[in-house]
Write a protein that binds this DNA or RNA. Structure first.
Lengths: 244, 244
DNA sequence: ACATGTTGAAAATGGTCGTTGTCAACAGCG
DNA sequence: CGCTGTTGACAACGACCATTTTCAACATGT
């Protein structure tokens, strides 16, 4: 530890200045982390291994990340962001009805998982193994948010029926995750479209079920209503991240 | 390590002979393991800690278990067996129809989880963190088996519709797990019956959806048919446990 | 060229865990 | 009683890993 006195005399190195070099190393570590966590898993990926893969030494690891978990969180965040962007793009050009919206989102997500299984593993499997937060199970990513938003906008008076839209969204999320994980662990044998359709059965059937329950209950029936547009990302932290 | 020559002079101790003493210590370790894994989690439970809780020393740990994972597997197996027995008992006295069968099973399982949250944590959460098997996600316990069996007996010609009953069962399983985990992490605030009903929505809606799809497809329609009795435990290892 | 920032390689530190061993006190049993 | 199995408490060893530190070689720019 140096004194925090003298201006730390920053200097370029091979044409790039310190901040850029740090960012570059951080990038290498993120790549290596995705590769390691996404193929060998969190537990099996030691810091040394990751550094070797990044062609860096441990010193630079701790330059950018507090510890291994911090790297995992960063890798996970980037992967989640990537998936979210792809999903939102797919939804933007999808027909705005209750049948196509889930299918568009599922196609985007599942297709991405098949194209890069490391994302599938990091986002669905390893996230549960790292001590990231106890609530990784709970609807907390963009996909789950969308489900709840969609459910609520389709059937705004579910609560009058004694149904908690959050729980339903969580269950739908779980059904998708479990099917997707099984597909992943099986090595993506079936075509994407088949998995999409199997996942979509849950969304279709839930929509029908909820529509029917509404139709035999108090408020005015709302038949095959078009779902509300997927507007801006309305991030509402459903649950506090357990502060490590 | 002794010579394996002389009959190792076994002797009683406080009225019990060696085998019983070993079994008794194993029992203590299983109890301590459930307590440790079920409250603090797998990662946070070291061998020394578990031994202290069992009021035994490490020597006796390795007498009964090869390592910490082996203990976890044993704890998990016992918990799974316990849940399975309770579920089968509940099903035995439940009305044999598609509405009550899932509810009876869900009531038994969720009630047990609320009465002993350690079981919930070990069976749903920690099992994914221990290196037990990669396929903990995949339908592999008695509950998931029941789901698939029930689905298939209700709608034997799903395959003709291009629907894989195994995937559907896996998805139903996932929806239940995710709802149950959320309930668990929330501290079991809602009453059991409310969670049962939310989980049951998925089973109800799936039954309706599949019935409708069958009715508009080739084979003869089979309206609200009674589900086949839950006969003997037909254990068919769906997937090989990753060895080691 | 010289002082200093920067890098790569690797050693040092500290902790945990699996595993084995030591030792004194105690219990069964001839 | 006295021999030996048995127990409990705990030290000891080696391995592994995360994290920190050292050090010599190299790059920069003045």
């Amino acid at each position: 530890m140096h004194d925090s006195e003298s201006p730390p005399g920053r200097r370029k190195f091979r044409g790039v200045d310190p901040d850029q070099r740090v960012a570059q190393r951080r990038e290498q570590l993120l790549h290596a982390g995705l590769e390691a966590f996404g193929t060998r898993g969190f537990q099996a990926s030691g810091v040394r291994e990751i550094c070797a893969e990044a062609k860096l030494t441990e010193r630079y690891f701790y330059e950018s990340f507090k510890n291994r978990e911090a790297l995992f969180i960063a890798v996970h965040e980037r992967a989640a962001k990537q998936i979210e962007v792809l999903m939102v793009e797919a939804l933007a050009i999808a027909p705005r009805n209750a049948r196509e919206i889930p299918r568009a989102a599922l196609r985007a997500i599942l297709g991405t998982y098949r194209d890069d299984p490391r994302l599938a593993r990091v986002l669905m499997i390893e996230v549960l193994r790292a001590n990231v937060n106890d609530t990784a199970f709970v609807a907390s990513d963009a996909f789950a948010q969308l489900i709840e938003q969609m459910t609520l906008s389709l059937y705004p008076n579910l609560t009058a029926l004694g149904i908690d839209a959050g729980l339903i969204a969580n269950g739908l999320y779980g059904s998708t995750i479990y099917i997707a994980v099984r597909w992943t662990l099986d090595g993506f044998k079936e075509p994407v479209e088949q998995i999409v359709e199997h996942c979509a059965v849950f969304y279709d059937s839930m929509m029908h079920e909820l529509a029917q329950r509404e139709s035999v209950a108090p408020p005015p029936p709302t038949p095959p209503a078009p779902v509300a547009a997927v507007s801006e990302k309305r991030r509402m932290p459903r649950r506090k991240q357990s502060a490590r």
